[in-house]
């Protein structure tokens, strides 16, 4: 099977947007990440795959410091995120820096995490207004455009609880888009959805990939990973077991563990 990705393959020369260097993370005695490095370049879609509990979410959450890695560095657009202390005591070093960096990383969660007390439009406008401090009229116009883009323009004034799961996740994607992110971070965006609602969300993510947005995507959906990615990374027991283009990883699998994983995924 050939890659279905339509955009030009992103050259290795494009500038790095997210760079992880030797990331380690433990929860108590459980060592979840054992030294992971990779780079997502401008315009690339990088998919993280691996069995449940292999540390995909933890790795993604290290990028915006929802989890602080015990060791290793995170660089966004070449700028290292300041951290202080060592090991489990390691903390965010500079609150202002991390807030600025976070305001450029659009995260989409498995369980949507829309703010329940705000309308859909309010959710999308919140960070641009209170974090980025942009002009309200401009933000509202852009927010409405983003909602149209993900196909829920008519739901702007509804509350999240009034929407279906697929609509909520698309609202969450619009929320991420409206901050004009340098990179979109998706953590299994369709895992909480019924199969018939999955399609509408995948279609939106595909659209964003084709626009050439930089994205890091944790997914269980191997067909989708294959169709949308420039690079695929397979995590196993806290390490990168195999990585490469979708054709390499899915078409010419080297690792026995990955073969086993893909077999299991195909029969799921």
């Amino acid at each position: 099977m050939v890659s279905m990705k339509q955009a030009e393959p992103v050259t290795a020369g494009a500038s790095p947007v997210v760079e992880l260097r030797d990331i380690h993370k433990s929860f108590g005695a459980l060592e979840v990440l054992k030294g992971i490095s990779f780079t997502a370049r401008e315009g690339q879609v990088v998919s993280l795959i691996g069995s449940s509990g292999s540390g995909k979410s933890t790795l993604l959450r290290c990028i915006n410091m929802l989890e602080v890695p015990d060791r290793g560095d995170v660089l966004i657009d070449g700028e290292a995120v300041a951290l202080s202390g060592d090991g489990p005591a390691r903390r965010i070093g500079d609150e202002n820096q991390i807030r600025r960096i976070r305001s450029e990383l659009g995260m989409v969660f498995q369980s949507f995490n829309l703010w329940a007390h705000m309308t859909v439009l309010g959710n999308v406008m919140e960070a641009p207004l209170v974090v980025q401090k942009r002009d309200r009229a401009e933000v509202e116009a852009e927010a409405r455009a983003m909602l149209d883009k993900v196909g829920i323009g008519s739901k702007a004034d509804a509350y999240p609880a009034q929407l279906s799961g697929g609509q909520q996740q698309r609202a969450a994607i619009a929320r991420a888009l409206c901050i004009n992110p340098r990179v979109m971070l998706f953590d299994e965006p369709t895992s909480a959805l019924d199969p018939e609602l999955e399609v509408e969300v995948l279609r939106v993510i595909k659209l964003l990939a084709d626009e050439g947005r930089t994205m890091i995507l944790v997914t269980h959906d191997m067909d989708f990973a294959r169709s949308v990615s420039d690079r695929v990374i397979f995590l196993h027991q806290g390490l990168i077991e195999e990585e490469g283009t979708p054709d390499e990883v899915f078409g010419a699998t080297k690792s026995a563990r990955l073969k086993q994983f893909l077999n299991a995924a195909n029969h799921a």
Binding site: N64, L66, E95, I98, R99, R100, I101, R102, S103, L105, M107, F109, S111, N113, L114, W115, A116, E126, A127, V130, V131, Q132, R175, I179
Partner: peptide
Amino acid sequence: PAGQLEAARAYGMSASQ
């Protein structure tokens, strides 16, 4: 719900926001 607080943090809100 903790996820909503986490989302607020992930979008760059300060602790007091």
